[in-house]
Design a protein around this nucleic acid. Structure first.
Length: 503
DNA sequence: CTCTGCACTTAGAATTGTTGAA
DNA sequence: TTCAACAATTCTAAGTGCAGAG
């Protein structure tokens, strides 16, 4: 990990050294007193050389490794559930290493221990052949629980939480659950207006609890915020969702940039991704927020009478199966459907239609705040692209100059040869202009996508039937929208949806 | 109502594989 | 043919939400 930024962080180094010392003998512990005096370069270079050697392998060697991998997948990558052979998602055990939490994680650098068969619980049916543990070892337990979907579990040593081996998204059990998720969101569509009217009424409630609940729900609905469960302090990075927002995470502006009642959100969300947004809200919401913030310290809870459990209980009363996260699914999917309607032009060619699809997808990703760190190579690749553009511009200037002199020539000499030359110069200019435009579009597109991740919404929030129906309606091959893995995951939707599907 | 354990979905980074321009 | 850019896949952390005990 020597090259990684993690190793420069104090908490990481402290945690690592503490855990490492526990593994040392007394003599080693006496000898090794400071991490900064330890030189790991010999090990680091060894692994670098290994990875270099792997790159230098011949085609045959690479093929051999590939075949061996395929054999492993064939042997361990599948199971039989309800008489169907199903792909297992994560069948390889997590290797030991140093824990890499996201954001400001208090446990980063701790030693993540090797999992032994003695830690492993196997869950399979009574009549099945229990996998044999590696020789000389035993499983912790073999159980037969058909109320859960996992095949294997163990307790990891950083947070003490349970980890699972489960089926691939293409499996029946995951697919049906996915489908149900979107069906719940579609039921919300039918009653969302009523629910909105209800929470707007509650902004005026005499009860503080109802006011907080209704304002929080407004944010969850309007801004697609996550629910915001409580977290144990000191165990994880300090991140929040809607219900766990603190006073310090919002600022109120009665007027800002010619807009009234603006709320500025600035907080670390899931994976410590920053949520930053300035939102004009209704006056009643604004006044309520002022009320909630009265006599509070920055580190106090904004919604002190509310948590996710209270909110979800209330939602359950409004609609069967309704929870806070359903709003995210609903708003994401409905946004995609609306955007597709708005942006798709039936006269466009296929690439232009796909561009529209990606733009609709991007609108959802922005709504859900799906960001990524700008790739490490972003600046560099942007520069290369820019220099390509510059070179193309120079080329265009040259081509235009040549065209000009060609024209002048053609005026004097009126023979076939000069005429032909003129034509070819014209075409050259045109071709270069097109190439330049393409490069410039690419640059804008890349710049716009710099910090936006489209994958998460596509995989988890957008009802795939919307996309399938759109493809059918406009004659777009489904392969243009979903790659192989995605088509496997969404097989249920591809089977089910016709061109007239409405979310 | 709170606390905890559990099982599941959602998430971006890291790694690996593929492609197409030079 | 090579190599960088881009796409796909893998990895595992970090959320949500529910149940049950007290």
């Amino acid at each position: 990990m020597l090259d990684h930024e993690y190793t420069t962080k104090d908490i990481f180094r402290k945690n690592f050294f503490k855990d490492w010392k526990k593994e040392m003998t007394v003599d080693e512990r006496n000898l090794l007193t400071s991490l900064s005096k330890c030189d790991f370069n010999e090990m680091s270079n060894y692994f670098k050389a290994q990875s270099e050697a792997r790159k230098q392998m011949t085609k045959e060697e690479k093929l051999k490794i590939k075949e061996e991998n395929e054999r492993l997948v064939a042997e361990y990558g599948f199971c039989v559930m309800d008489n169907h052979k199903e792909r297992i998602a994560n069948f390889r055990i997590e290797p030991p290493g140093l824990f890499r939490g996201r954001g400001n994680h208090p446990k980063m650098g701790k030693l993540k221990r090797r999992i032994m068969p003695e830690h492993i619980i196997i869950n399979c049916s009574k009549n099945s052949k229990v996998p044999t543990p590696p020789s000389g070892h035993k499983w912790k337990e073999v159980r037969h629980d058909n109320k859960v979907t996992w095949l294997v579990s163990w307790t990891e040593n950083i947070q003490g939480s349970i980890k699972y081996i489960m089926l691939n998204p293409s499996s029946r059990i995951k697919g049906e659950k996915d489908w149900q998720k979107y069906e719940t969101a579609r039921r919300l569509k039918k009653c969302v207006e009523k629910i909105r009217n209800t929470y707007r009424e509650d902004w005026k409630s005499k009860e503080m609890k109802a006011r907080q609940r209704s304002v929080a729900l407004y944010f969850i609905d309007k801004l697609a915020l996550r629910a915001g469960n409580e977290k144990e302090e000191g165990e994880t990075a300090d991140t929040v969702g809607c219900c766990s927002l603190r006073v310090e995470h919002i600022k109120l502006y009665p007027e800002l940039d010619k807009q009234e009642y603006v709320v500025e959100f600035d907080f670390p969300g899931k994976d410590s991704i920053r949520y930053y947004n300035k939102v004009p809200v209704e006056k009643r919401v604004f006044k309520n927020l002022q009320l909630f913030m009265e006599n509070k310290q920055p580190e106090d809870d904004l919604f002190d009478r509310l948590n996710t459990s209270i909110l979800n209980k209330h939602l359950q009363d409004l609609m069967d199966g309704l929870t806070a996260k359903v709003f995210r699914t609903y708003n994401a999917s409905i946004t995609l459907q609306q955007q597709l309607k708005e942006l798709t032009n039936s006269d466009d060619n296929i690439p232009a239609k796909i561009l529209s699809y990606n733009r609709a997808n991007r609108a959802v990703a922005i709504l859900c705040n799906h960001q990524r760190a700008p790739p490490k190579t972003f600046e560099k690749s942007m520069l290369t692209l820019q220099s390509k553009i510059d070179a193309k511009k120079d080329q265009l200037l040259d081509a235009r100059r040549e065209l000009k002199s060609s024209k002048a020539d053609a005026k004097v000499k009126r023979d076939e040869k000069t005429k032909k030359l003129l034509e070819s110069k014209k075409k050259a200019v045109q071709r270069i202009e097109e190439q330049l435009m393409k490069l410039e579009v690419q640059a804008t597109d890349r710049e716009e996508n710099k910090q936006i991740a489209l994958g998460t919404s596509k995989l988890n929030y957008l009802d795939p039937r919307i996309s399938v129906a759109w493809c059918k309606k406009y004659g777009i091959p489904i392969e243009k929208i979903y790659n192989k893995t995605q088509r496997e995951k969404f097989a249920w939707a591809i089977d089910m949806a016709e061109d007239d599907f409405e979310f």
